[in-house]
Design a binder for these strands. Structure first.
Length: 159
DNA sequence: TGCAGTCTCGGCT
DNA sequence: AGCCGAGACTGCA
């Protein structure tokens, strides 16, 4: 790929969220890794007015923004199948790792599905936070469980 | 709580 | 190409 991705940053009380955008759309979303729950209550401090930044801001403030275009996400065929499956989970709902595994055709690949979720290149845009364990506990989150809890909480707001 | 079963991926021969 | 270890899981003892 010759041209550099365009970078956008969103400032929040929990750190800076970085977006990588190419011609076709968003290809990466990076959240600061949080080991523990921050003391500050979450808030967006500063965000651009482009569709991607607006999406993030609205999502994090409890809104229901339309998903902006995603670019070519690199991953294996299996990972893409999983990520695609995640896009079908409606906002405000959750699925178990097992549900996803069944949806993509093999109920036994739960562990593999979890791996694919962990390699989601664009959390917030691909809603891997809506995937939890069958027993109802949260499960993991690559950038830290605080984000997962926050995301599920804000999505409960207007449903 | 612990553990075996199951599938994918990445790193190493 | 094949082996091996590890992982955001699950169900059963």
């Amino acid at each position: 790929m010759l041209n550099e991705p365009e970078l956008r940053a969103i400032l929040t009380t929990w750190g800076v969220i970085k977006l990588d955008i190419v011609r076709d759309g968003l290809v990466r979303c990076r959240l600061p890794r949080l080991q523990e729950i921050p003391k500050d209550t979450f808030a967006v401090l500063e965000a651009g007015s482009d569709v991607y930044s607006c999406y993030v801001r609205q999502l994090l403030e409890g809104g229901t923004p339309a998903l902006p275009p995603l670019g070519r996400l690199d991953g294996t065929a299996f990972q893409k199948k999983v990520w695609n499956g995640l896009l079908n989970i409606p906002r405000g709902e959750t699925r178990s790792y097992r549900d996803i595994a069944e949806a993509i055709g093999n109920a036994r690949s739960v562990r593999a599905v979890a791996n694919a979720c962990g390699r989601n290149p664009a959390p917030l845009f691909i809603p891997c936070h809506r995937v939890i364990r069958t027993d109802g506990s949260l499960g993991g989150f690559s950038s830290g469980p605080a984000w997962k809890r926050l995301l599920l909480a804000v999505e409960q707001l207007n449903c």
